[in-house]
């Protein structure tokens, strides 16, 4: 069982109207693996991520998580999503609930835990992201970095087998990016399986086991970070990385 991948995407296609966003994606994630997806905006990386927990319904192809085909119409998608944590670019914290309640609400309504048990779990996870002192705060009182860490704690409270990160630092002030990345790095070291869409090349290079470069709805190349980010084989990858890593020397095209 251990050698079957935790996530397997097979020939995934997705269109929005005339726009063919995903054009046949095959991707696997082993248990405990950290995979970073990079690529220009509009390349389909967020859509790919959102297909993994079926927030976006693929037009064709298979999404297998832990051996279960989520695209099967008779699949219990709500049950499957419990084990797939997701962190959004805009945090999407519940503004009417305190940090603690953001973490407990799914535990009590979905997992049917008792309130006390749920609060224990929530406090443990808020401590894990370094926010033990913000348990009673409403999201509006927290900085962007703190909000995103609450969002991570909220996802962790469901004890997921897999975590999806959709550009988790893109909406943050530069000085709060670090605290979120630190939490994510810690999570990776703890052995969490992670699929991360990001523009943080330093994070991809240092934390990822594998980097996937996407462009125009296909995976252009993937491999170890030092290969893909360090010595990309494909011209498209080289152009993209030059724009990202050396933005002051890009010609006007």
């Amino acid at each position: 069982m251990t050698d079957t991948p935790l996530v397997r995407l097979r020939d995934l296609h997705k269109s929005f109207g005339d726009l063919h966003v995903l054009r046949g994606i095959d991707l696997t994630l082993d248990k405990g693996e950290v995979v970073c997806v990079i690529g220009p905006s509009g390349s389909g990386k967020s859509t790919l991520l959102r297909c993994v927990n079926l927030l976006e319904q693929p037009d064709s192809g298979e999404v297998l998580v832990d051996g279960e085909d989520l695209t099967d119409p008779d699949c219990d998608i709500d049950g499957a999503r419990r084990h797939i944590g997701m962190v959004f670019q805009q945090f999407n914290l519940f503004p009417h609930l305190r940090a603690l309640e953001n973490c407990t609400t799914a535990l009590t309504t979905v997992a049917k835990r008792s309130k006390a048990e749920a609060e224990d779990t929530a406090i443990h996870n808020l401590e894990r992201v370094g926010l033990a002192d913000k348990v009673r705060e409403y999201p509006a009182k927290l900085s962007g970095g703190q909000q995103q860490r609450v969002a991570i704690a909220r996802a962790l409270s469901m004890d997921p087998a897999l975590m999806l990160f959709d550009e988790p630092t893109s909406a943050l002030d530069p000085e709060t990016v670090g605290e979120v990345l630190t939490v994510m790095r810690q999570l990776a070291e703890d052995g969490m399986t992670m699929l991360v869409v990001t523009h943080e090349m330093a994070f991809a290079r240092e934390v990822a086991d594998r980097v996937v470069f996407m462009d125009e709805g296909v995976i252009v190349e993937q491999g170890r970070p030092d290969e893909v980010v360090g010595q990309p084989r494909e011209e498209r990858t080289r152009t993209f990385l030059k724009r990202i890593l050396d933005p002051t020397h890009v010609g006007p095209t």
Binding site: T109, R154, A155
Partner: peptide, 26 residues
Amino acid sequence: PKGQVEAARSLGMTAGQAMRKITLPQ
């Protein structure tokens, strides 16, 4: 915002639970 329902659904809530616990109170 649409992201509220997405966050709720990503935690495993059904459409009805997301409506009652997250959308309607807001």
